[in-house]
Write a protein that binds this DNA or RNA. Sequence first.
DNA 1: TGACTAAAATGAGCCAGATCAAATAAGGGA
DNA 2: TCCCTTATTTGATCTGGCTCATTTTAGTCA
Lengths: 250, 250
Amino acid sequence: MSKRRETPLKNIKLEKGHCSIGVRLNKLGMVPFFQELSESDLEKVNQHFRARHFDRGDVIYREEETASLLRIVVAGKVKLVRHTLEGKDVLIDMLQPGEYFGSLPSIGDEKYMETAIAQTQACVLSVGTDDFRNILNQYPSVAVKALEITAGRLKESQEQIKQLRTRSVENRIAHVLTMLSDKFGEESEVGLLIQVPLSRKELADMVGTTAETASRIISRFQEKDWVSTGRQWIAIKNQEKIRDLSQDKG
Amino acid sequence: MSKRRETPLKNIKLEKGHCSIGVRLNKLGMVPFFQELSESDLEKVNQHFRARHFDRGDVIYREEETASLLRIVVAGKVKLVRHTLEGKDVLIDMLQPGEYFGSLPSIGDEKYMETAIAQTQACVLSVGTDDFRNILNQYPSVAVKALEITAGRLKESQEQIKQLRTRSVENRIAHVLTMLSDKFGEESEVGLLIQVPLSRKELADMVGTTAETASRIISRFQEKDWVSTGRQWIAIKNQEKIRDLSQDKG
DNA sequence: TGACTAAAATGAGCCAGATCAAATAAGGGA
DNA sequence: TCCCTTATTTGATCTGGCTCATTTTAGTCA
């Protein structure tokens, strides 16, 4: 009855030159940091950026490397991971176009604390930390925006700490699925598809479990027909149930 | 042989009027935010602040209350806690003079995400969020500083997430003890004393365990003569061992 | 379309740490 | 110095989720 299935994930193929100077200026204005800048200021700021393309799986920078650049995702998805000595990974964040990563110009912020990897083909802008510091001092609105964004991330990360301590793995998985579908969700025939390649292992690393446990739980969801999944993808069929579980009192 | 023991903790009694306008300006310059401001700018900024005294246990603000003030600890210690529906608490941070809390002026930051409680008698400054926003726009150095501080907290909190997922409770307790002694440590006859009242329950809430488990672990440390403790206080007698445990490969 | 490979699903056993229940003891107050 | 409250300690038991090992797929590629 069913044809051979193939990934419902979009194969994001970025064309050659997509990461060029021309496109760049255009996109820069859409980055939250710079939203309040005038056209001309934007152009000045743009001078300091360099653009670079990455293929899926490329390491953008490594933990422990000397941190000297602030980066902004312009196209594609980028994941941030921390490795531990015991060989466990912690998936800190999955970034979308418009989001920043790398080092903010802070004192003693000499090493990157995490590894950044292109999760799909991606185009990334970068500025030197010193240049960015100048930008911050010159355009207070950029600094305020950066502060807001960072404060927001701090809250999220505190929320995650709270969840890690108090909710079950099942609840936490429901929670990331909700977050991911809010961020990357796209309606498709199989349900609300999370438009990023994401293995069970990666899902587990976001939530703080093992791939096995994550798999068991996803299977359970599937039995109840709340999600549909395959290799590296998950789509949500019953948003309400999943959201309920992610809320308090699952 | 030994006299009746009493808490080695200092009873921080703040005198009346300690929290007055006069003292205030003096202290404001010591707050990291404002370190780079000139005397006269400092005075202008000071206009916007109000000072207020709190006794031990006083609630400074509650989770879910509308957030409208940014606060700065001027004297005493303040703890930030998150409560969960299940009745568990998460102790997010223990603040020292000079540190900020409350709401940064960010969009949609309408509710406090945590409850702030005076852990000792304390003096706290506050500014309206709008006023602070103006300060940020007017003095970029303040904004940059705020950004640095917030980014630093973000890193800490990511580090904590990593630890929660990968280290044992024993390791994590050793880790907070190390952090707390770096921050609040004071040499005393009983060892490097953490100069803040801190119950086992609170220790547990910082680390993500139960009071019982925390107690068992502290007992173990005590047997090895690494720490000495009593009600609401802990002093470290063997910093090296504790630090080793908190490091990787305990 | 069939073969092949890495991802995913499953099974069985085990343990750190949570829970529940009780016994102790620290240290403030009079 | 004694009393009393409430933190702390300790014991016994239970379990979610981790581990290790194996079997099944999904989906790509030729």
